[in-house]
Amino acid sequence: MVRTIEATRPISESIPTPPKIKVSLKINGDLKQLQIAPWTSLLDLLRDTLDLTGTKKGCDHGQCGACTVLVDGRRVNSCLTLAVMKDGSEVTTIEGLMADGKLHALQQAFIDHDAFQCGYCTPGQICSAAGLLAEGKAHTAEEIRELMSGNICRCGAYPNIVAAIQQAMSAMGGNS
């Protein structure tokens, strides 16, 4: 039962989809020239077009943090970011955190402290934590908890996430 609706549909009647726009993005260090429809979120661009599926979709409405990536060094929800609006930006995803084949201190700390179970919120947690370290505003466990509250972990690994971030903070010479 193959359907051939595409072929039989009169072109004149069709409702067009938005024209794609040329966008350049530096993703995990690679400069990419892309053609992107305006309605495509940065999250869908990463997952569906670029096959960078480490960034997760948990709600698509900025309510869970699973899609957190770093744009120009700041943590944002990629689900509520239109990719075309980030033309010229640098995007770092979980796939871009390793350097020279070595895990980022946060990645190692998350393993050490069992700071995840199912692993689905984990890339977002780690990118969010990387953003938190860069901000330099969290010094106590209390402050880490508050500033990591935009990342929901349904498995309930929160205390281990805080411990992992504290470990990475000390490893990276920050204050904890």
Binding site: N77, T81, G150
Partner: peptide, 9 residues
């Protein structure tokens, strides 16, 4: 308000 990610945006 919101979360740090949202406040960044």
């Amino acid at each position: 308000g919101a979360s740090q990610q949202l406040r960044n945006m």
